[in-house]
Structure formats: structure tokens, C-alpha cells
Amino acid sequence: MLEIRSLKKYYRSPLGSVEALSGVELEMGQGEIIGLFGENGAGKTTLLKSILGLQSYEGEILLDGERICRKNISRLSFATCEHSFFPNLTPEAHREFYKLHFGTFRDKRYEALMHFFELPKRKALKNYSAGQQNQFEVIMALCQGADYILMDEPFVGNDVFNREDFYKVLLGILEPEETILLSTHLVEEVEKFVGRVVLLQKGRIVGDKTMLELEEQNRTLIDYVKEVYGYRSDRVERALEELTGGQEK
């Protein structure tokens, strides 16, 4: 169980301190696939980086009751759109590096995914296309052997078929104890893939529902997201009316 208690994060700026996360409370059980949604600047990346200890924060983040430290950090893996691989190294060199540092590295899964996505193993990653780099980033996060796999917009730049393939493969290979926290903007696309959604707005959790609950309420994910964020469907029509109608008059 990954528990986040009263998580606060402030960024200092010349104009004063900006609150990026304000009192986030979240629990993630093993085996869950959670979609983390929110507009730009809502705090998604900040939340993920705080969990990984990549930045300082106030509050508490516990993994099975213990603070995240060197002892248990290998139970978390991370795939980010910023990419965390070494661009000059080949995938094979990465595999060696991961095997050296993460004893739980899933070699078989690595082979299968590299083969499935037809990624060249002897080519330096800097020579991969943006889509291939994303795929490799996610593959390494999945193969590290972590229980909690955090993904921050991992498919930016991938085409829709590619993303679709990934979701299917993910559902097929994940083991029951593996948890995924996926931060993305592609709400409709991940609807069939996630089991729970967490909505962030201005550093606060404004929605947290399982897909089962939404199904029972006969609501789609996008409807729920629009409702929580107070999206006005007539907003565009009104704006267009104001723009064009005003001219006609």
C-alpha cells in the first residue's frame, strides 16, 4: 500500500511561494491501475516526483508503512515524457545497467516487449525516433521489477495505434501485485485501461472514483471529468456567437 498523507509542496518564485500541492491524501493498493488526470499545472508531475523522492515536500509518503528510502526505492519505477534513460547507450547497455542495480529486473519481459515493439537493441537511444524512445522508457519502467510503476505522460508523441497496443500489452503482462499510476491527458483513451481515476486541480484532489462506481452510476469517465472540472459545454457556442453574432448585428 502506498499512502500519501497531507502532502504539500511549495515552489519558490521571485513573487513569493507558489503552492503546487496542498494537502494531498491518497492511498494506492497493490494491483490497482490508476489514471491521474488534471489540466496543465494541476500538480500531477509534482505529485509523482514527490513520491519518488526527486524533490522535497511536506507531509508523509509511506510504502507499506515505511518512508521511501534507498531500502525500498527499487519497489518504485518511473517512466517520464522527459525520458530518464542515457541517450548515448544502447538498450542492451541499459539492460546491463538495470540488472546491476535492480536485482528484480524482469529479463523475460524485457525481451518480449523489445521484440513486440521491434526496437533495435544495438542502436544508441539518441538515434531512436521520439515514439520509440517513449516505448523504451515505458519498457524499462515495466521491466525494473517494481511493484509501483509511475508514468508521467509516457505516450506523448506516439500515434494512437501505438498507444492502443501498449495498453493491451500492459493489461496482458501486468502481474496482480503490480500497481500503475498513470498521469495523462488522454482521458477517453485510457478509460478501458484504468480501474480508478484520481482528478487533480490546483494541487488538490477533486475527484477519486473507481470505474466500477462510474459504471454503476451509468456515467462515462469523460462525463465525470467534465462534471468535476465544471466544464461548460455551451462555452464554445457562446464564444462563437459573441464573436460572429456581434459582427452581424
Binding site: L52, G53, L54, R70, K71, I73, S74, L76, S77, F78, T80, E82, H83, S84, F85, F86, P87, H101, F102, K126
Partner: peptide, 13 residues
């Protein structure tokens, strides 16, 4: 080019 610092800072050793 990338943020491999994220990986280095996550290493258990």
C-alpha cells in the same frame, strides 16, 4: 538531452 538524473537518483545503491 534526457533527465537520466531521475534514474540515477532512484538507484538503491
Amino acid at each position: 538531452r534526457t533527465k537520466s538524473i531521475y534514474l540515477m537518483r532512484r538507484l538503491p545503491a
